[in-house]
Nucleic acid binder design. Structure first.
Length: 321
DNA sequence: CCCCAGGGCCATT
DNA sequence: AATGGCCATGGG
């Protein structure tokens, strides 16, 4: 693949009115995406690569973001339309936490206020699959490093020419690029974990064959259990990662992934006894049922992600990455 | 040195 | 069904 060179004359800019419903910084730092970086040359701009387009976003104020992009359209849509969908601005977040929840858990409700505009994004399914297959039992910074290395090694290199100097970006590799990867070579990018590398390659081949890709297209229609079963067929994808894929990559806001952090707040905030025991499959399902009873089944995952980020920042005092 | 970090899989009881 | 070991690395 030849590298792509883009000059600064080809950058398109726009303003997007978010109506104070998008906390952009916390949204991209909340652990659902590892592909946004604070740009060192264009300070105060976050940059990412979506498909083969470079995009910059700067928060003007709470109501407005400035957008710079190397293309006029993303995935066949005007940039602002694409971003509204990406950040799920069409979704009414006011309904996420019910009035019953607000009355029953006033201290949690108070703590979560500043995170209510953290959006659950609708990201590319394949990219999310690879990302969360890299997220087993390790810290966020190691996940970020793996995703970056995969893009640098297997993605399309894109150079951007600016008055301030040249910038280099990498697209996220499409399924065929990882399907044909050598396991030992990919393992260099997956924290030297060869099992993980082999699992990603097998999943990419399943995606490339059309089976997994078709399941993604139909993911909005089938029930969550069926969707999880088709995802969990793949080695390296268990219940938790399947739920992450459904929530962050397939727009299934009812999917409620439970990890070590969620397990902690289910006990500390809601006093769910089972959260003190280990996350066996049976206990995982029990915890999901109890969480849905508190958060509501329809948007449990959306609420869960906001609580997840709130827990890590406010209680665990963790830095973003 | 220890334990923990957005887990999943396998072998053993 | 529940438990332990294993994978791998970095940070506290």
């Amino acid at each position: 693949m030849p590298d792509i060179m883009i000059t600064h004359k080809k950058i398109y800019s726009s303003l997007l009115n978010t109506k104070s419903r998008l906390n952009f910084k916390d949204t991209v730092q909340s652990g659902q995406s590892f592909r946004w970086n604070l740009n060192e040359t264009l300070k105060s701009y976050y940059s990412s690569v979506i498909y083969n387009s470079i995009i910059f976003i700067c928060e003007i104020n709470s109501e407005m973001i400035e957008v710079l992009c190397t293309d006029q359209e993303l995935s066949g849509k005007p940039i602002n339309e694409f971003l509204k969908h990406l950040f799920s601005l069409d979704f009414q977040e006011e309904t996420v936490f019910s009035s019953r929840f607000q009355q029953e858990f006033p201290e949690v409700w108070n703590l979560v206020q500043s995170y209510r505009s953290v959006r659950v994004m609708r990201q590319d399914p394949f990219e999310i699959m690879v990302t969360f297959m890299c997220a087993q039992g390790i810290g966020m910074h190691l996940i970020r490093r793996q995703v970056s290395m995969i893009a640098e090694r297997y993605g399309q290199k894109i150079m951007l020419e600016l008055p301030e100097g040249n910038l280099t970006f990498h697209s996220f590799p499409p399924p065929q690029a990882l399907a044909s990867a050598d396991p030992n070579e990919l393992a260099v990018c997956t924290n030297n974990n060869r099992i993980r590398a082999a699992n990603i390659i097998a999943m990419a081949r399943s995606f490339e064959s059309g089976k997994l890709a078709l399941a993604c297209v139909d993911s909005g229609k089938c029930d969550l259990e069926t969707l999880r079963e088709t995802l969990c067929v793949h080695s390296g994808i268990g219940l938790k990662i399947a739920d992450c894929i459904a929530l962050f990559g397939l727009g299934r806001f009812d999917a409620f992934p439970i990890d070590t952090h969620v397990k902690q707040y289910l006990w500390e905030w809601f006093g769910i006894e089972e959260a003190r025991h280990s996350l066996t499959e049976k206990n995982y399902r029990i915890l999901q049922e109890k969480a849905r009873a508190i958060l509501g089944a329809e948007y449990a995952g959306y609420a869960g992600h906001i609580l997840f980020h709130c827990w890590r920042k406010e209680v665990k005092k963790m830095k973003a990455f």
